[in-house]
C-alpha cells in the first residue's frame, strides 16, 4: 500500500470517528434543548409585564382553583399537584407489592424455565400502549369497579391509579429483578448453609442486600407515574378538584397540559402557565430519576465489588 493511500485511509477513519462522535453528542444537545425551550416558554411568567397582568409565579399558589379559561382566570396549581400526588400514590400502593413480589418470586423461587416465561409476560404488559390502558380503564374497568363498590363517580383517582399501576408494574419489576439477581450466590449459600429456609434467605438476606436497588425501582416507577399522561387523561375524570377524596374525579398536571394546550391562545398567560407545569414535571421527574440511578449504580458497584 502506498503511503498516500494509507494517509487517505487514516483521514477517512478520523472523519468517520468524528462524525459518529458528533452524532453521539446530539443526545446531550437534545436534553439541553428540551430544558432550554420549556424554560424559555415559562420565563414570561417571571419577566414579561404583559403576561404578568394575567399570571405571576405567586398566583400559582393562591387559592385552590385552576380555572384558566374564565372572566376571572385562576391559576392555582394546588388542585392539579394534589391530583398528581393522589393518583401516583394509588398507583404505587397497587403496583409496588405486585411488582416486587413478582420480582422476588422470579429471582428467588422460580425455576429457570418459569423464569424465562415470566420475563416476556412482563415485557408484553410493558408493550401495551398507554392509550389502550386508558381506553380499558375508561370503558371497561371504570364501570366494573363502580358496580362492585357502588361508587358515586365512575371516573376517579382510584380507577386511574390502578390503570396507572398496570403501566408502571413492568418498570418496577425489571429494575427490582436486576437488583435481586445481582446479589451474589454466596450470600444465599451462606444463609442456607446456616439453616435458614429459602423464604428467610430471600427476605432476610437477599432483599436487604438488594434494598437500594429495590428502592431505586420504586422511585423509577414513581417517576413514570408522575409523567404518564394518557391513562390519567382518560381514566381520572379530569375535574380539577382540590380534594383528598380518592373516589372523586381528579386531574393531574400531565392531563392538564394534554387537555388544554390544544385550545390555548398562543402567547397568553395560560399558554405560559402550561409550559411552567411542563417545566415542573421535567424537573421533578429528573430529580426522582437521578436519585434512582444513584441508588442503583451504588448498589451495583457495591455488589460487584463483593463478588471479587
Amino acid at each position: 500500500m502506498s503511503l498516500k493511500k494509507t494517509r487517505f485511509k487514516y483521514l477517512g477513519e478520523s472523519l468517520i470517528e468524528g462524525n459518529i462522535k458528533i452524532t453521539a453528542i446530539l443526545a446531550i444537545i437534545a436534553v439541553f434543548l428540551i430544558f432550554f425551550f420549556i424554560l424559555r416558554e415559562s420565563l414570561p411568567i417571571f419577566f414579561n409585564g404583559e403576561v404578568q397582568q394575567e399570571i405571576t409565579f405567586g398566583k400559582f399558589f393562591q387559592g385552590i382553583q385552576w380555572q384558566p379559561v374564565s372572566d376571572h382566570p385562576r391559576f392555582s396549581l394546588w388542585p392539579i399537584i394534589m391530583g398528581s400526588l393522589k393518583v401516583t400514590m394509588i398507583a404505587l400502593v397497587f403496583a409496588v407489592p405486585v411488582a416486587i413480589g413478582a420480582a422476588l418470586y422470579s429471582s428467588e423461587f422460580a425455576g429457570r424455565r418459569l423464569k424465562e416465561f415470566i420475563k416476556p409476560v412482563v415485557e408484553l404488559l410493558a408493550g401495551i400502549p398507554s392509550v389502550v390502558l386508558g381506553f380499558f380503564a375508561l370503558i371497561i374497568m371504570a364501570s366494573f369497579l363502580k358496580n362492585i363498590f357502588g361508587w358515586t363517580y365512575r371516573l376517579n383517582a382510584v380507577n386511574a391509579g390502578i390503570a396507572l399501576g398496570f403501566a408502571i408494574i413492568p418498570a418496577i419489576y425489571s429494575l427490582a429483578e436486576d437488583a435481586l439477581n445481582a446479589v451474589p450466590k454466596s450470600f444465599r449459600e451462606a444463609a442456607l448453609g446456616l439453616g435458614a429456609t429459602p423464604w428467610q434467605t430471600a427476605v432476610k438476606v437477599v432483599l436487604p442486600a438488594a434494598l437500594p436497588g429495590v428502592s431505586a425501582a420504586v422511585l423509577f416507577g414513581m417517576g413514570r407515574a408522575v409523567g404518564e399522561t394518557m391513562v390519567v387523561l382518560m381514566a381520572a375524570g379530569n375535574a380539577p378538584l382540590f380534594s383528598l377524596n380518592p373516589l372523586e374525579s381528579t386531574r393531574t398536571m400531565t392531563a392538564t397540559i394534554a387537555a388544554e394546550l390544544g385550545e390555548v391562545v398562543f402567547g397568553s398567560g395560560h399558554y405560559h402557565a402550561l409550559f411552567f407545569i411542563g417545566l415542573t414535571l421535567f424537573t421533578v421527574t429528573f430529580v426522582i430519576n437521578l436519585i434512582s440511578w444513584a441508588l442503583f449504580d451504588g448498589l451495583m458497584s457495591k455488589l460487584y465489588g463483593a463478588k471479587k
Binding site: 443526545a27 437534545a30 436534553v31 434543548l33 428540551i34 425551550f37 420549556i38 416558554e41 398507554s130 417517576g223 408522575v226 409523567g227 404518564e228 399522561t229 400531565t254 397540559i257 394534554a258 394546550l261 402550561l274 409550559f275 411542563g278 414535571l281 421535567f282 421527574t285 429528573f286 426522582i288 430519576n289
Partner: peptide
C-alpha cells in the same frame, strides 16, 4: 431523555 415525561416531549 428516557425519563422525560411524554407530554413534555409534546411541549418541546
Amino acid at each position: 431523555l428516557a425519563g422525560v415525561p411524554s407530554i413534555v416531549f409534546g411541549l418541546f
